[in-house]
């Protein structure tokens, strides 16, 4: 039990009469790459917001990095990294300004910012862009930079909300290599995606349907359970069954 970085028990969120998240219970282990899938409107975003300390659950229990989502949401925010597809970096700040801004928010010292910032720029091979506006970066680099910034403080967990949407197929794969590197360093990765091939890269995958976690296992076991050749088929099976109800 102690090794779980995320632990939820009957976690619930209602808006008026609408049950957005309906008693979900699951655990995510240290360094695990956890795929959090579901159709639009299934409740993924609401669940993620609760885990990031941005939304108070209606009932149930949850801890993230050992902190209680009800009472210690500020501590959670300091312990995690977050990256979304839509908003990640300030286009009208330079690459270096974005790095120092985020690293500062995450509480790194000036010395650490300098060290890790330089390392990050070197690893991404964007030395020529350091003093240029983020706007001028090719999209693929922007996404990789956004991810690097989200893990600059070596968070215990990083939440990635559709990080690869619209990204070219090669960059998409390079992005997953970065995810694996982070996982090897011990960072837990909690990721949502609409690309079903990416579900195969996860250690375990949960599929949410109408506020409920309908399935949770390794991709291999899920395919076996639903007698499917691919994760795409598993997803269609679960999401479409509900659509027909």
């Amino acid at each position: 039990m102690e090794d779980y970085v995320i632990h939820t028990e009957n976690l619930n969120k209602t808006f008026g009469n609408f049950v957005a998240v309906n008693n979900i219970s699951f655990n995510v282990g240290k360094g695990e790459i956890f795929g959090f899938l579901g159709a639009n409107g299934a409740g993924k975003t609401t669940a993620i917001k609760m885990l990031c300390g941005l939304l108070t659950p209606t009932s149930g229990k949850a801890t993230v990095a050992g902190y209680d989502v009800f009472k210690q949401s500020e501590s959670i925010k300091k312990t995690i990294g977050y990256m979304s597809q839509k908003f990640s970096l300030y286009n009208d700040l330079t690459v270096w300004e974005n790095i120092t801004l985020y690293a500062g928010i995450y509480g790194l010292s000036n010395k650490e910012i300098k060290e890790r910032g330089n390392m990050l720029i070197k690893t991404l091979e964007i030395e020529n862009f350091a003093t240029k506006l983020v706007e001028s970066l090719p999209l693929g680099f922007k996404q990789k930079l956004a991810f690097s910034v989200a893990v600059i403080h070596n968070p215990q967990i990083v939440f990635l909300d559709e990080p690869t949407g619209g990204v070219d197929p090669i960059t998409r794969r390079q992005f997953w290599e970065m995810i694996y590197q982070a996982s090897e360093r011990g960072t837990t990765v909690f990721v949502t995606t609409h690309y079903m091939d990416e579900a195969e890269y996860c250690d375990r995958v949960s599929i949410m349907v109408d506020g409920v976690i309908e399935a949770l296992d390794t991709p291999k076991m899920l395919k076996k359970q639903f007698n499917a050749a691919s994760m795409d088929e598993v997803f269609l099976h679960l999401a479409r069954n509900v659509a027909e109800k």
Partner: peptide, 13 residues
């Protein structure tokens, strides 16, 4: 123009 961006696999189909 990109009618299916950000849309889940079932809705895309």
């Amino acid at each position: 123009d990109e009618p299916t961006t950000g849309v889940d696999a079932v809705s895309r189909k």
